[in-house]
């Protein structure tokens, strides 16, 4: 039981951090770019996609022995579009404001690559319960990523988050971040930031692993060497992050000028 819980927790970490569908796998770009004008839209879109992803993964996994390989993609699309229609009707009935602001992007969850990718890569090969949790973790990773992008865009674009004013009423609001081009710029910078963090994390784990293995051989020399390499890496990293900071700075400046 304990092992099973641990496995699911690992799966969650994978879906939200290691294999985040938006920042790492770069899947499902259309809703990511289109619905992140405000945090409330992003949460709505993310949760709608998560619901569809969980249900479709569960059903595809249950039916995986009955779907012939040749027509599996078509069958997946039919199953997914069934759930999308259900979610669409539920949102229309209970959250009309969200329906109005997301518009055509709710039915377009059908062609969201994340859902088809998880169906093909995971649910069609695994038992129902892990598939369901895979859907949940990937969906939450997607929702979280959407919220990050939307928080940046809403904060810079209108000075508020979830409608609460944060930067004060004198903040002029950089309209460019609400406009379509701001979506591309924000996502580009955030993906670069995530790349950077992943590279730093990887180099840290690598350098610590190096120290451990090498010190086992010849303690004194090796630790010096690995220290040097580690500090070198840290230096280059800090340069790079400064560069990326500069880039984001110039871009937000541009945004200000354009406005």
């Amino acid at each position: 039981m304990n092992a099973a819980v641990k496995k699911y927790l690992l799966q969650f970490k994978e879906g939200i951090v290691d294999k985040n569908p938006t920042f790492v796998q770069l899947l499902g770009m259309c809703p990511t770019l289109a619905t992140t004008t405000s945090v409330s839209n992003a949460v709505g879109m993310g949760l709608a996609a998560t619901a569809v992803l969980c249900c479709s993964n569960l059903f595809i996994s249950l039916l995986r022995r009955f779907i012939p390989r040749e027509v599996r993609i078509a069958s997946f699309i039919v199953i997914i579009s069934g759930f999308v229609s259900a979610v669409e009707m539920l949102i229309k009935a209970f959250l009309p404001a969200l329906d109005a602001s997301l518009g055509v992007f709710i039915p377009l969850i059908v062609v969201n690559c994340i859902i088809l990718a998880r169906a093909e890569a995971f649910a069609s090969k695994n038992p129902p319960l892990p598939s369901f949790f895979d859907g949940l973790s990937m969906g939450l990773g997607f929702t979280l990523a959407l919220c990050c992008i939307a928080a940046v865009r809403e904060l810079l674009g209108s000075g508020s988050i979830l409608g609460f004013n944060i930067l004060g009423s004198s903040y002029p609001g950089m309209l460019i971040f609400i406009m379509p081009s701001g979506a591309f710029l924000t996502l580009g910078c955030l993906v670069a930031l995530v790349n950077k963090l992943r590279a730093v994390a990887a180099s840290h784990s690598r350098s610590s692993a190096d120290t451990q293995t090498v010190t086992a051989d010849s303690p004194a020399e090796a630790s010096e060497i690995s220290d040097e390499t580690a500090s070198g890496e840290v230096k280059t990293n800090s340069c790079d992050s400064e560069k990326s900071d500069e880039n984001t700075g110039t871009e937000s400046d541009k945004g200000g000028e354009d406005k």
Binding site: L26, S181, G182, A183, F184, L185, L187, G188, C189, V191, A192, L193, N195, K196, A199, D240, K243, S244, N247, E251
Partner: peptide, 16 residues
Amino acid sequence: PKCFRGMPMALITAGL
């Protein structure tokens, strides 16, 4: 910069 190579650069280009 290294972390901007590939997709981030493409996204920023698309933004411009």
